[in-house]
Amino acid sequence: MGEVLVITSGKGGVGKTTTTANLGTGLAQLGKKVVVIDADIGLRNLDVVLGLENRIVYDLVDVVEGNCRLKQALIKDKRYPELFLLPAAQTRDKNAVSPEQMKALNDELKEIFDYVLVDCPAGIEQGFRNAISGADKAVVVTTPEISAVRDADRIIGLLEAAELRNPTLIINRLKIDMVRRGDMMNIDDMLDILAIDLLGVIPDDQAIVISTNRGEPVADGSTSQAGQAFRNIARRITGEEVPFLDLDLQDNLVHRLKKILGFAK
């Protein structure tokens, strides 16, 4: 029996889709059977981030409405034997699927896969309610900005009201030099405010933009810090204890010396 994780944030543009694609890739690398579902009906993007946009025939709404069998709509990622995408419909709206249908779909997928990752739409309306329906666990993605953290707090409240207790946090796009200068909230600041467990931290990394341009998730073998961070989170999801990346966030004497000697930026 697999596990359904919903990746959510409240605010748009903080990296839910990138996170979903990379965690799916990271889990598949560990040999897990994974399906990633794009629940953002009408604004689908998980397909392009994974580089699978040209292979869509059927979508989530087709499955729910019975226009095709579930297996016909699952797109296999050729890079991994056990990674599949269930794309969102692009020409429908969020009401095309009900929470009950979503739960039934998740229950069916859980029988086949080790992990079902649901990429939740931004917002707190029907699309959000559908996407969290049938999830076993929730992951909240935020960036170190007031607006994103505020929305994350709201989402945590709504998740708990929907009986999705103890969501975990991914802090995305942490700019290390700004944290050192005291111009960006650090990891402890955000954990202090949101008071949930940390699942991982993704440093701001140009490799993400480049990999998204190419449709190849950064967790796919890249030596970048972000790729490593995503692979670590995937391992944590499987229950492994993985230490957090040493991001060297302190502006201390050691760092200044390293800077002088050319070992740090």
Binding site: R150, M185, D189
Partner: peptide
């Protein structure tokens, strides 16, 4: 430092 300003404002708003 601006992150402390952010944190204070955020706490109040929350």
């Amino acid at each position: 430092k601006s992150k402390n300003v952010a944190k204070e404002r955020l706490k109040l708003v929350l």
